[in-house]
Write a protein that binds this DNA or RNA. Sequence first.
DNA 1: TTAATTTTAGTAACTATTATTGTTATCAAT
DNA 2: ATTGATAACAATAATAGTTACTAAAATTAA
Lengths: 129, 129
Amino acid sequence: MAALKYSRQRESIKTYLSSTKEHPTADMVYLHVKEEYPNISLGTVYRNLNLLSDIGEAIKINTPDGGCRFDGNVMPHNHFFCKQCGRMIDLKMDDIEHVNEIAAKNFDGIIESHSILFYGTCGDCITKN
Amino acid sequence: MAALKYSRQRESIKTYLSSTKEHPTADMVYLHVKEEYPNISLGTVYRNLNLLSDIGEAIKINTPDGGCRFDGNVMPHNHFFCKQCGRMIDLKMDDIEHVNEIAAKNFDGIIESHSILFYGTCGDCITKN
DNA sequence: TTAATTTTAGTAACTATTATTGTTATCAAT
DNA sequence: ATTGATAACAATAATAGTTACTAAAATTAA
């Protein structure tokens, strides 16, 4: 297995992901890291986001519109997607890992995990209307 | 609002979706309907799949790899995605709508719904290994 | 049938992502 | 510190999946 060498760019991407709760797109990460490393390329950002996701140091979440968001918080948690403003928000909610057992009951394969995304309208959008 | 006119192509797409449990990709639908209507274009397939999904006569499911699958079964049900063979399988499982209330407990927005996808290894892939 | 409108096929364009290429940075051993 | 091997880099090209455009054909209403 290829040893992972240090790189400032990857470090910067990680730092940014850890600092924000915005669940940025790859492009948002790119624009941000660009401020520190103006020559960084979008491809590098993609490669490192996927790498971080692969080694479990970030989470990749696909949005209903086809795009992807990234999250530096790797603690298990669930997300909410606001249909109005498109924001993705962390949910502080009780564990629902038990749904895996419910799913496994009449299934002959192995359920390892699930990913769930909640939809609706966020608090901000409710007050705005 | 524009009235919806009949089209053989759309009918054929609908019929195919209703007849299969394979959760086909747009391209698989295209290849299948092409047997009946050799001149159909991929754009027509996409347009109609999205249309059917919009009017609630089909379901669009994004897979973890970025692609989309379509399902003619619009009854509420959950899906399983096999990490090995990439198949998407219907789960016959108890209702888990209660997770919406769990999510809503400490949240100031409105949780309308959720979508959940289970991951793991399907029965076929287990026996093969 | 005629006229109005939708749908189609074919193609082009678009977006997000991944792969490629030539160059530079990192690191361990000298 | 220098070297050599390998990884990471920027830049760009390529790809995949999807959507937009347009003229011609199909559908429906009158």
